[in-house]
């Protein structure tokens, strides 16, 4: 049974040390909940970017909340490099599990199938493989005729998937629309926490058109309302990004002192929710 709750309660449901799956920019990044997580002082998160990260990942790293990161890339897009991420990597304070986008999708898909791994073509010859002892190369067992090396990606089972959507109904069914990666994340994770723009009156499964883009409450532990919950990022189809705020963040992320000021004034201020 899904609980309707508050953003702060959602943050309190993410224990220190959790493996936390986060969606890429534009597709429902739960920024309100991220600020609540930082306010509650979460520590030692093991982030899984699906499959890439932006301001959310950078902010959590800068706020000292992250022990480990699995990612295919972290950047602030057209606003430039993710400063806290780069600082943490070059100073060696972050354990990094370097990946490539389809490998993260494959790992989550393996988990949702209850399979130990999925095979993935390509990747051979990349230095990513050298630094991922958990990724193995096997010979294609179905090819009896020839050597045919193929990479296998172990299942990725996050403790928690956290994302933002347009709406959820009273029962806790969540409308993800065409953002189908959110469904894969929820299937793969042990628990799913969702923030939404608004509450949908009725049941999403009663409308065939909406039902096709709906994640069942079966997978959802808790839902919380958070209007403009992706800001300062945009939310495709709903609102654009706050360019001034993202520019200011990009600048602050490049210097320790500036970032500390930013964090104190913005991310940790309750009024910024």
């Amino acid at each position: 049974m899904t609980t309707w709750t508050t953003v702060d309660e959602v943050a309190s449901m993410i224990p220190d040390g959790s493996a936390l799956a986060l969606i890429r920019d534009g597709c429902g990044v739960a920024m309100s909940a991220t600020r609540a997580l930082i306010r509650r002082g979460v520590r030692d998160l093991r982030l899984v970017n699906v499959p890439t990260g932006g301001i959310q990942t950078d902010l959590l790293i800068g706020a000292g909340c992250v022990a480990e990161l699995e990612t295919s890339g972290v950047s602030l897009g057209e606003y430039g490099p993710a400063g806290r991420f780069a600082q943490a990597v070059t100073s060696g304070t972050l354990t990094l599990k370097e990946a490539t986008c389809p490998a993260i999708h494959a790992g989550l898909q393996a988990a949702e199938k209850g399979a130990p791994f999925l095979p993935l073509r390509g990747v051979l010859g990349s230095d990513i493989l050298r630094f991922r002892p958990d990724w193995r190369v096997i010979n294609n067992p179905l090819n009896d005729a020839a050597e045919d090396p193929v990479v296998v990606i172990p299942a990725i089972t996050p403790d928690i998937a956290l994302f933002h959507c347009a709406m959820a109904d009273d029962a806790g069914n969540v409308w993800v629309g065409r953002e189908r990666d959110l469904i894969t994340m929820a299937h793969a994770a042990r628990q799913t926490l969702v923030t939404v723009e608004r509450r949908y009156p009725g049941n999403l499964f009663d409308d065939a058109a909406l039902a096709a883009g709906t994640l069942s409450s079966f997978y959802v532990t808790a839902v919380a309302p958070a209007a403009e919950g992706c800001k300062p990022l945009g939310f495709t189809g709903h609102y654009g990004e706050d360019e001034d705020a993202l520019r200011a963040y990009a600048k602050a992320s490049r210097r320790d002192a500036e970032f500390a000021t930013y964090l104190a004034a913005y991310a940790t201020a309750p009024a910024a929710v």
Binding site: G73, V74, T100, D127
Partner: peptide
């Protein structure tokens, strides 16, 4: 990924994104 001796790069770029796969496909 970055300049220097991985994983302690002296300059860090964003990451490999889909390149390791798409370069084959």
């Amino acid at each position: 990924v970055g300049i220097g001796d991985y994983p302690r790069s002296t300059v860090r770029f964003g990451g490999s994104y889909g390149s390791a796969f798409l370069y084959y496909m």
